[in-house]
Computed example of a mutant assay.
Amino acid sequence: MSRTLVLIIVLAAIGVGGYYYLNQPEPTPAERLQSAAEDAGDALSDAATAAQDAASDAVDAATEQAAEATSSLTEQASEAASSVADQASETAQQAGDQVAALAGQGQELLSSWIQEGKLDAANFDYDGIMTSLEESTLAADLKEQAIKIVNDIKESPETIAQKIQELTNLLTQQ
């Protein structure tokens, strides 16, 4: 009997549940709208979360790329600065070598005049000195100054000692 009783109770419970389910009223348009709004809100929230995650990933990737680009640019700038410094050092060395070569040329020219006796107070060889000056590879401004001093000697022979000293200073200092 107990089985029958349990079976009757179970059938009665199913019947009551079925009756309640079938007699449940249809949702009203407002309830349907509210349910749709809740579903849309959930979907919108999910979409916003996905968009936020995607934006965060994009920002992280952009930050990483910017850091890499900055590092690369810094490295390139350092290499460029080093290259410019090396070139400047080489240029300065070359300029120094050229100045030394010019000074050597002036000294050689002066020595040749003295050895040949052209630059002597008693035996001043204006034409010989002018020819060697004009044929020399001295810098143009240095050559012009030397020519001016030699012309001054020719015009004022009494100042030869002073002008020879000026010429010596000019040709040995450069």
Rank of each mutant, 00 (worst) to 15 (best):
A122H: 06
A81V: 07
E90N: 15
D120K: 15
Q94R: 14
L167W: 09
E64Y: 02
E134T: 06
E64K: 15
L138I: 00
Q145V: 02
Y21A: 15
G15W: 12
S82F: 04
Y19V: 08
S35T: 12
A140R: 05
A161C: 02
S71I: 03
T137K: 05
L167K: 06
A85M: 09
S156M: 03
T137F: 09
M130A: 04
D127R: 08
A47M: 09
A81H: 01
A69R: 08
K118I: 02
S72K: 10
V99N: 03
I153W: 02
I129F: 09
V16C: 11
A121S: 15
V99M: 07
D152I: 04
A36L: 11
A121V: 14
G41D: 11
L5A: 11
Q93W: 02
P25Q: 08
T49R: 12
A36Y: 01
Q115E: 14
S156W: 00
I147C: 01
Y126K: 07
S111D: 12
S112D: 15
T63E: 09
G128K: 08
I9Y: 05
A122I: 05
P29K: 12
A47S: 11
S156V: 02
E166D: 09
Q145S: 14
S78K: 11
A80F: 00
V10P: 03
Q94H: 07
T49S: 14
G18I: 15
S45R: 13
I153P: 01
S136P: 10
A36S: 07
K154D: 07
N23C: 09
L138A: 07
G15L: 13
A122Y: 07
A95E: 06
V84T: 04
G17S: 15
G128S: 14
S89V: 06
D125V: 04
S35C: 02
P157L: 03
S71G: 14
N123C: 03
T172V: 07
A140C: 05
E38P: 03
K163Q: 14
W113Y: 10
Y21W: 12
D125E: 09
S72D: 01
D42I: 12
A47E: 15
A50H: 10
R3T: 02
Q76M: 03
A61Y: 00
